[in-house]
């Protein structure tokens, strides 16, 4: 038993950047989108770390990183990501904007995964983030799974344990800060990861060198993906800058009294 783990991961603007919407020829976009520093989508990055961890523990397994993004920006992001875990890159050239159509992205990703030479679909684990930090919809991965005919799907995954019989015990986030525990008979399955439990792996120049042998050719042959967007009526930043009342040099007891009254609604 070994797995072929395809991790779908886009790139998103670094969360510390200020974002401003503008209208572009293909619909809404971000101001200076190509100039904003980008990172691998955070929840998808957790999925990648979990995939790598699983592949190390199940000999013969292989990790594919499947990414649809402007290839020049993807290359920049991979300069650091490629040093963290070993993977084979499957790249598609196209927009990484949150305003694009999730169904189109799913169609392109599913076709790219189907075309991976030697992929064993019966042992496929389709990983990704349960939501991106761009569209933040949590819809793409499920559609990729459906296109690949995978009917066992999990979202908001924080833990995966493989049993001796190949069964998969999965913890998914549900309401009220709890986890649902499910046992799936085995691959194929879709796992949309939340935070998981692994820290960000340290950079390893050796892993980076090894990855770069496949990353550069994959980027060179990245096919353009057909990704559209639907019609937007309005796109805007929130208007809710608050007027902050700053309370200073007041004894703690008085602050506590004011907060207590506020909590009690008086």
């Amino acid at each position: 038993m070994s797995y072929h783990i395809a991790v779908c991961a886009g790139i998103v603007p670094d969360p510390l950047q200020t974002l401003e919407p503008v209208s572009g020829p293909q619909g809404p976009a971000l101001k200076n989108e190509m100039m904003l520093p980008a990172v691998l989508d955070p929840w998808a990055a957790h999925a990648l770390y979990e995939a790598s961890h699983l592949a190390k523990n199940v000999p013969g397994s292989k990790v594919y990183l499947v990414s649809l993004a402007p290839k020049a920006k993807l290359q920049q992001v991979l300069m650091t990501m490629a040093q963290k875990v070993a993977f084979e890159l499957v790249a598609l050239d196209g927009p990484s904007s949150g305003f694009t159509e999730s169904a189109d992205v799913a169609s392109a990703l599913a076709a790219a995964i189907e075309a991976i030479p030697g992929l064993d679909r019966s042992q496929l684990l389709l990983f990704g983030g349960w939501e991106s930090a761009a569209r933040a919809a949590g819809t793409t991965l499920a559609m990729v799974g459906e296109r690949l005919g995978i009917t066992e799907q999990f979202q908001g995954v924080d833990a995966l344990k493989v049993g001796a019989d190949g069964s998969l015990e999965i913890l998914e986030r549900v309401e009220g800060g709890k986890h649902q525990v499910s046992v799936c008979a085995g691959a194929p399955a879709v796992l949309g990861w939340a935070t998981g439990s692994l820290p960000e792996p340290p950079n390893s120049p050796q892993t980076g060198m090894q990855n770069m042998r496949t990353v550069m050719p994959a980027l060179q042959k990245a096919k353009p993906a057909q990704v559209g967007a639907h019609a937007f009526l309005s796109v805007s930043l929130p208007k809710q800058q608050r007027t902050t009342r700053i309370v200073k040099d007041v004894p703690a007891a008085e602050v506590a009294r004011e907060i207590a009254a506020w909590i009690r609604g008086s």
């Binding site: 800058q241 608050r242 007027t243 902050t244 009342r245 700053i246 309370v247 200073k248 040099d249 007041v250 703690a252 007891a253 602050v255 506590a256 009294r257 004011e258 907060i259 207590a260 909590i263």
Partner: peptide, 22 residues
């Protein structure tokens, strides 16, 4: 502009008292 009120205070001291009040 992110909060309506900011109390510039030591949270340990404020929460000791708030725990008592609540």
């Amino acid at each position: 502009g992110k909060a309506d009120v900011l109390y510039v205070a030591d949270a340990f001291e404020v929460m000791e008292e708030l725990n008592r009040l609540l």
